[in-house]
Design a protein around this nucleic acid. Structure first.
Length: 497
RNA sequence: GGUCGCGUGGCCGAGUGGCUAGGCACAGCUCUGCAAAAGCUGCUACAGCGGUUCGAGUCCGCUCGCGACCUCCA
């Protein structure tokens, strides 16, 4: 747990809008809850950004030595289309369109989500609870809210009484909203006479006879409200008060605001100590969203088969691109930016390979030991400063220069410096940033390597007899097949273009 | 309309009272049979206008432009 002693971690708490020192309730344990996807359609790149952001947080907390219980839910019921409380359930609608059981839809898109997470090397959470798996907990929570006087039943549905809650509690404190302004700004909502106020939201919803996803409850057959599952499941697995709750910026209101209200109403205190919100991925300056039609799926990204894509990009290129931007800033997707990240990642990963082969210099410069320690310290400080991965990556490129200079014999690194550099780079690049080599992702290249090595020998022989036409032909032919040769002092190496 | 945020060099993006972020691109050099790779060097910006300050991308005000949320969205 030595890392825990290396200075405090600061996180921007979106509840207070300040950078605060992170102090867990029960160290070394940390409770982390992140709103997961509603599994009614394919995830797009914007979704991936949020999960990558909290993957970085999860990885950094573990790197610091914390024992993290990371809960990320799957929403498989209750999330309605269009107008709150009047729209159709998203999953039920999709089931009707695809002529499948709702649970087939849930399974299909849950599988797809998991595939995408694996592709982008996003770690699995400790617990991945589903809303339908926690109906009892949700019903119990509705009961507690009714008992506390903040929930009321109307025609088989149960609503949360927002104006009443706001009299005693700070409804809107997370999203910076004032109850009066909310009432003023609410547009006309027709057919909602069950609700006492347009601000009220359903915590339990009556199901019509033809509704496919419904369960018995004290108020008749129905299904839980969308906001409720997160409150019920975070309470169950992390306790009534826990350390960190994350999610996309667009969930701040009303979703997270409602979560706070539900927990306060049911259990009497605020559920979360640090709220964190990841910012949006934009395309041409606009939020990537299904409704904008500007989203592309990971598959389209990889193949480049989309009108916004000049070519395909690997998942690791995209991950690296995202991590080069601070999570709280909007990030604009562009082909030029992607290609810049692609090149940068390639250089970083090449240096990782070089570092593995680096031998200590005989005339080691002891000053370099200190330089490496400084790098490590600055990486650590950057990440502790609200997960500043872009600054940490900038430091990694300083390390890249050091590695390459050492490889060229321009800097003399001793055994200690090399060991510490390896330890630092492996930790930051693989464990914390969660990058991996494309070869590792693609599989084994042993046969191909054997073939290419044979061509490299042929080319070396041609070069030895100064037959450059022949040697260039080998190189050009391989290049045409996507195999790039590089001559170094130690011989020729190859890699995929 | 309300609330919040943003505007940084050719592009992407950190920083946030005084000191070169970094990546990509571009130019020159070194190395090389030639390339590629790598290293070195160069290009040095903070939307505009005013103010505070010894000193402002950094704080304050105004103007312009853009976005997010306020309705499902990560």
């Amino acid at each position: 747990m030595s890392n825990l002693q290396k200075g405090p971690l600061y996180l921007t708490n979106t509840l207070t809008r300040k950078k605060e020192e992170f102090i867990p309730l029960r160290p070394p344990h940390v409770g982390l809850y992140v709103c997961g996807p509603t599994v009614y359609s394919d995830v797009h790149l914007g979704n991936v950004r949020t999960f990558t952001t909290f993957d970085l947080l999860y990885r950094w907390l573990m790197h610091l030595g914390y024992k993290v219980r990371y809960v990320r839910n799957i929403t498989d019921v209750g999330h309605l289309v269009g107008d709150v409380d009047e729209g159709e359930d998203k999953i039920a609608k999709r089931a009707r369109l695809e002529q499948l059981e709702p649970m087939e839809i849930v399974q299909k898109y849950t599988n797809g989500f998991h595939d995408v997470m694996r592709l982008f090397n996003v770690l699995s959470p400790s617990i991945e609870p589903t809303a339908t798996g926690h109906l009892i907990e949700q019903i119990e929570m509705v009961k507690r809210i009714i008992e506390s006087g903040y929930g009321y039943e109307a025609n088989g549905s149960v609503y949360f009484d927002v104006p009443k809650y706001a009299q005693k509690h700070a409804y809107g404190e997370l999203s910076g909203r004032k109850i009066d302004e909310l009432i003023t700004n609410t547009r006309d909502t027709e057919g909602m006479d069950e609700k006492r106020s347009p601000l009220d939201f359903a915590i339990w919803k009556r199901a019509e006879a033809q509704h496919l996803m419904k369960w018995p409850s004290p108020w008749g057959e129905g299904f839980p409200g969308w906001h409720l599952e997160c409150s019920a499941m975070s309470t169950k697995y992390l306790g009534q008060t826990f350390d960190i709750h994350g999610g996309g910026m667009d969930l701040k209101f009303p979703h997270h605001e409602c979560e706070i209200a539900q927990s306060v109403a049911a259990d009497g205190h605020a559920p979360v100590r640090y709220w964190m919100h990841g910012n949006m991925l934009t395309v041409n300056g606009r939020k990537m969203a299904k409704s904008e039609g500007n989203g592309f799926t990971p598959e389209e990204l990889l193949t480049g088969n989309h009108k916004l894509l000049e070519k395909g990009y690997s998942a690791m290129t995209v991950r690296f691109f995202m991590l080069q931007c601070h999570y709280a800033s909007t990030l604009d997707f562009s082909n030029a930016a992607m290609q810049a990240s692609e090149k940068g990642l390639e250089r970083l990963m090449a240096a990782m390979g070089t570092l593995e082969k680096l031998r200590p210099a005989t005339n080691a410069d002891p000053g370099q030991d200190e330089a490496v320690r400084g790098l490590a310290q600055r990486c650590h400080t950057a990440m502790n400063d609200d997960l500043n991965s872009p600054v940490m990556i900038a430091e990694l490129f300083e390390a890249v220069r050091l590695i390459n200079s050492a490889n060229d014999g321009k800097v003399a690194l001793g055994a200690t410096a090399i060991e510490e550099l390896r330890s630092l780079m492996n930790a930051m690049v693989f464990d914390v940033l969660g990058l991996r080599t494309e070869a590792a992702a693609a599989g084994d290249d042993t046969a191909l390597d054997g073939l290419v090595q044979e061509f490299i020998r042929m080319r070396a022989e041609a070069k030895a007899r100064k037959d450059f036409a022949a040697s260039d032909r080998v190189r050009d032919q391989l290049a045409a097949l996507g195999i790039v040769l590089k001559d170094t002092k130690e011989g020729t190496t190859w890699q995929r273009a």
